[in-house]
């Protein structure tokens, strides 16, 4: 039994479609999307706005349910996986609780688990160290910069040590410099945790820099139009952004949009 388990993909989407009913018309947000993501894989969902990449992520997280198709998370339904606290989510905005200091924001998910105080404090300490915010643990969210706030959100998402980390354009509100630095930090964090990551972005270079595979989606209706393997070596450093292979991948992915 355990041997067959090993080959099971972590996230499986079979012919998933999503329709919204608006006042004017019926919108097909996702049409017949089938996706298989392996355990421990870093995958990006890339596409322009309206391609359904966020919808796809929200279906994975069991925040919405698809109109048709089947979703399996490590052999369970998305709902079962959510109830088993297998997800960590980072949204586009940090969504920190104003009334909680940094360390209290990070401890929020831990309060939903039964965990003793010393272990909780140890884990919070490790997470603060991981995202480099030990000095700011007693600050309120509004006392931090946007990049720092998003780092708190990442630490919070990792607090439950989730099997699956879902990130919905987490760095899109940041400037280019902060974004690239946080990309590198994210990879170093991921290398320590090794969980499955699904990362939504509309930045081609961000998707390439981070991922093992990039799922390219096209809009109206949202469909999976290409899957691009990123065979750049790991660990990846910022120098890799200047390599010819990196540029080649950018132009490959860009051309995959042109047919649409």
């Amino acid at each position: 039994m355990t041997i067959t388990r090993e080959y099971l993909p972590e996230i499986e989407f079979e012919h998933v479609s999503m329709r919204y009913q608006t006042d004017a018309a019926e919108v097909l947000a996702l049409e017949d999307v089938s996706v298989h993501i392996q355990k421990g894989e870093f995958v990006s969902l890339l596409g322009p706005s309206g391609c359904g990449k966020t919808t796809l992520l929200r279906i994975m997280a069991d925040l919405i349910q698809p109109t048709s198709g089947e979703v399996k998370i490590a052999g369970e339904t998305a709902r079962e996986a959510r109830l088993a606290q297998k997800y960590g989510i980072v949204f586009q905005s940090p969504v920190l609780y104003d009334w909680r200091k940094v360390k209290q924001n990070i401890s929020l998910p831990l309060e939903m688990m039964s965990m003793n105080k010393t272990e909780k404090e140890k884990r919070i300490h490790n997470l603060l160290e991981l995202v480099g915010l030990e000095k700011f643990k007693d600050k309120y969210p509004w006392q931090l910069s946007g990049g720092m706030q998003q780092r708190v959100a990442i630490a919070r998402a990792l607090a439950m040590e989730p099997e699956i980390l879902l990130m919905d354009e987490p760095f899109s509100a940041l400037d280019e410099f902060s974004r690239e630095r946080l990309n590198e930090e994210l990879l170093s964090i991921w290398s320590k945790f090794g969980n499955t990551v699904v990362f939504v972005t509309h930045s081609i270079s961000e998707a390439i820099f981070l991922s093992d595979r990039v799922f390219v989606l096209s809009p109206h209706p949202g469909r999976l139009s290409a899957i691009v393997e990123i065979d750049l070596p790991r660990p990846r450093t910022k120098e890799i952004r200047n390599s010819p292979e990196f540029y080649q991948l950018i132009s490959d992915i860009r051309s995959s949009f042109e047919g649409v």
């Binding site: 959510r82 088993a84 606290q85 989510i89 905005s93 609780y97 939903m112």
Partner: peptide, 19 residues
């Protein structure tokens, strides 16, 4: 989004109110 966050933690309804 903060409510969805609690939802993703599988938080109990009273937890959502309290926290």
């Amino acid at each position: 989004a903060a409510v969805e966050l609690m939802h993703s933690y599988a938080a109990k309804p009273w937890s959502v109110y309290l926290k």
